[in-house]
Structures are given as structure tokens and as C-alpha cells.
């Protein structure tokens, strides 16, 4: 009844065009740079880069090895570049699988039959009581460390939180007037999903994906650091594991050995977080509280 009732959709429309904002823009640029680096490592470095011995052990940075070499004479820059590929691929695959899993499970819990919804929600309650990190360590110890297994473990453990967020979003969506109107027209669930819910839920999947990718990068690096990574694959976490094992802190080598991979992890997560936060802020100021 006040001047504020001027068509909310106009606002929504401009928001969708400017989904990222300046903060998200910075994040996107940063992430693109990291992805480009990973792509360089993947396409242009020779096979076995970062795995093979190319110099003397413990070399300081030089023209040939800009970040020096590790205790086995492997090039640290190559490890960093190849590690970017490993981390990002794992993060994106797991984030995609988790998002799909969370969307299906959260969706079923939202609009499925009451018994199914109750079962899923109690299941999520139990999952949320179990400490994630302990589950990862346990699974990595007993099930092995290959890429596929790691991806599967991460996806299986990370879905409950986003599933609950998406369930809440589905419930909100289903109570929207235009969805109710479509239901009253005799529309089937498929139509409601494709024509009505996708418009509202689609943008929500982006922050879910981004947040999951962040968590994957941190957890994967943590596991590798604890010595539970794949020792044959160069990754940021594994490099840091060797730093710890070899007691590199005692010399100046930590600067080029431990610095870059840690910084790479931090920057990647920051880039993702900037994107995620700005999208969440724009989509729904209250949503980020329930993540």
C-alpha cells in the first residue's frame, strides 16, 4: 500500500542480469586465472611433469626451476601446475555430483510423499551429527586413495547440508502463487519443475555448487596433507605433506616449497567464496544463513 509496491519483478529482472556484482566479478577473474593455469599444466606440460626427477634434491629457485626442487629433485613449479589440475578437476566433479545428488534428495524430501520426506530428513539429521572430517579420514584410510574413490567418498559425505538447503528452497518455491496456480491448472510435477521451479531453483544451484567445490578443495588438501592422498599424483596437499615430513620449516626452503601451494589453495577458495557469497547475497539475503 506504499510507494514500495512498484512491481518487484522489475528489480528481480535487473538482478538476474547483474548476478555477480563487483565482488563476484573479482572472484570470477581470479578463478578463470587459476583454471587457465590448470589448463596450461594439463595441456602443455610433458607427461610425468612434477613426478619425475629433473634436478638435484633441495635445489633453490633458479631459471630452470623457478620454485626449486623437492627432496627427490622433482620440479616444484610443475607440481604446483599439475596440482591445480588435480584439485580443480576433483572439486568440479565432486561439486557437480553433489549438487545433482542434493537436488534430487532435497527435491524428494520437499515434494515427495510424506514418509519419504520424513525418512530423508531423519537420515540427514544423523549424517549431520557425524563429524565430516573424521568420516573422510576413516574412508580414505580403509577404502583407498585413488581419484575415483576419493571423489565418491567426498560426494557421499558432502550432500546432506546442500540437500537441506535445497529442500527448504523447494518448499518455498512450491508455496509460490504461480506454482500453486499451475498446480490448480492440472499441471504435472514435471511441468512444474521444468517451467516454474527451474526458474527459481536454478540460480540456487550455483552457490551450492560453488560452496561444495570450496569444501572439496579444503578437505582434499587436508587429507593429502595428513598423508591420505594419492602419493603418485602431484597435488597441492601432497606437496605440503612432504614439507611437513621433511621438516622444511627449519630452512628457508619453506618459502618456495610450502608458500605457493598453500597460497594457491587459499586463492582458489577465496575466488569461489567471492562468487558464492555475492550470488547468495543477490538471490536471497536470508539464504546464506542456512547454508
Amino acid at each position: 500500500m506504499s510507494a514500495a509496491t512498484t512491481a518487484p519483478e522489475v528489480v528481480a529482472r535487473t538482478r538476474r542480469h547483474d548476478l555477480l556484482g563487483r565482488q563476484g566479478g573479482v572472484g570470477t577473474v581470479l578463478l578463470s586465472l587459476i583454471v587457465a593455469t590448470a589448463a596450461y599444466g594439463f595441456f602443455f606440460l610433458p607427461d610425468g611433469a612434477g613426478k619425475k626427477r629433473v634436478g638435484q634434491p633441495y635445489e633453490a629457485p633458479s631459471g630452470a626451476h623457478p620454485l626449486g626442487t623437492d627432496d627427490l629433485g622433482r620440479d616444484l613449479l610443475n607440481q604446483l601446475l599439475v596440482g591445480a589440475g588435480t584439485s580443480l578437476t576433483l572439486a568440479f566433479i565432486v561439486a557437480a555430483v553433489t549438487t545433482v545428488l542434493a537436488a534430487i534428495i532435497g527435491g524428494l524430501a520437499g515434494i515427495g510423499p510424506r514418509w519419504l520426506s520424513a525418512t530423508i530428513m531423519r537420515g540427514i539429521d544423523v549424517m549431520l551429527v557425524l563429524p565430516e572430517l573424521v568420516l573422510f579420514i576413516l574412508a580414505a584410510t580403509f577404502l583407498g586413495q585413488s581419484f575415483g574413490i576419493r571423489a565418491a567418498i567426498l560426494a557421499l559425505i558432502l550432500w546432506p547440508v546442500p540437500a537441506r538447503v535445497l529442500r527448504a528452497a523447494v518448499l518455498t518455491t512450491w508455496s509460490r502463487a504461480h506454482v500453486e496456480a499451475a498446480r490448480a491448472m492440472g499441471a504435472g510435477q514435471a511441468w512444474l519443475l521444468a517451467r516454474h521451479a527451474s526458474y527459481l531453483l536454478g540460480p540456487l544451484l550455483v552457490p551450492v555448487f560453488v560452496r561444495t567445490a570450496m569444501r572439496v578443495i579444503i578437505y582434499d588438501a587436508t587429507l593429502s596433507f595428513l598423508g591420505l592422498g594419492d602419493p603418485t599424483m602431484p597435488s597441492w596437499g601432497t606437496t605440503l605433506y612432504w614439507v611437513q615430513v621433511n621438516g622444511v620449516f627449519l630452512s628457508d626452503a619453506w618459502l618456495w616449497w610450502a608458500g605457493p601451494p598453500g597460497l594457491a589453495i587459499t586463492l582458489t577458495v577465496v575466488a569461489l567464496a567471492l562468487i558464492g557469497t555475492s550470488i547468495e547475497d543477490r538471490l536471497n539475503p536470508n539464504l546464506q544463513e542456512s547454508r
Binding site: 502463487a177 504461480h178 500453486e180 496456480a181 498446480r183 491448472m185 526458474y199
Partner: peptide, 20 residues
């Protein structure tokens, strides 16, 4: 759903009942 197609519905909220 076939029966529902024989009934029209006008929702209370004209701002939310039309897909933007």
C-alpha cells in the same frame, strides 16, 4: 489433473501468481 483442467483459478496475489 483432467478434472482440474475444467476449473479456473484466480489467485489472491497478482504479483506472485504470474511467472515473472
Amino acid at each position: 489433473r483432467a478434472l482440474q483442467r475444467r476449473v479456473g483459478f484466480v489467485h489472491q496475489d497478482p504479483y506472485d501468481s504470474l511467472h515473472p
